[in-house]
């Protein structure tokens, strides 16, 4: 049996979680204080995921950049590809929170959305 010590990143509490594994199967999760921790621990030892946040160029807006995020988690090994897609974005003002700017980024099934309102100049 394998034991893995994790720090939950589900929220800033940072719970210390102990996961017991056997042949890649999760036997037990302990130390978490909520369901997010349980889910995070199970994912982290089998297929780690992260939310990616960055900015995109905005043309004709009150600011030169709008912040964006992946609407859900994407596989950790896709982060660099997702960043490349986001770096290629050029948005026209106005943009508002929730606007989808990339659908199904890098085949992850997750959209990239705007997280900050930028009004027209």
């Amino acid at each position: 049996m394998e034991k893995r010590e994790l720090t939950c990143i589900g929220c800033p509490m940072g719970c210390q979680i102990t996961v017991e594994l056997e042949d890649g199967q999760v036997l037990s999760v302990a130390g978490n204080t909520c369901g997010i921790g349980d889910k995070y621990a199970r994912n982290e030892v089998t297929h780690p995921e992260r939310t990616v946040t960055s900015t995109a160029i905005v043309v004709g807006g009150q600011g030169p950049r709008a912040s964006v995020k992946t609407k859900g988690n994407v596989p950790k090994d896709k982060i660099a590809d997702v960043m490349k897609e986001i770096d290629g974005l050029v948005l026209d003002a106005p943009v508002k929170i929730g606007d989808i700017v990339i659908k199904d980024v890098c085949g992850t099934g997750v959209d990239v959305v705007v997280t900050r309102n930028i009004s027209k100049e």
Partner: peptide, 18 residues
């Protein structure tokens, strides 16, 4: 612009601007 805000207040994970 990173996420992790609002889990206590809104029970969802938001970025700072959101």
């Amino acid at each position: 612009i990173h996420n992790g805000f609002g889990l206590h207040t809104f029970k969802e994970e938001l970025t700072g601007p959101e």
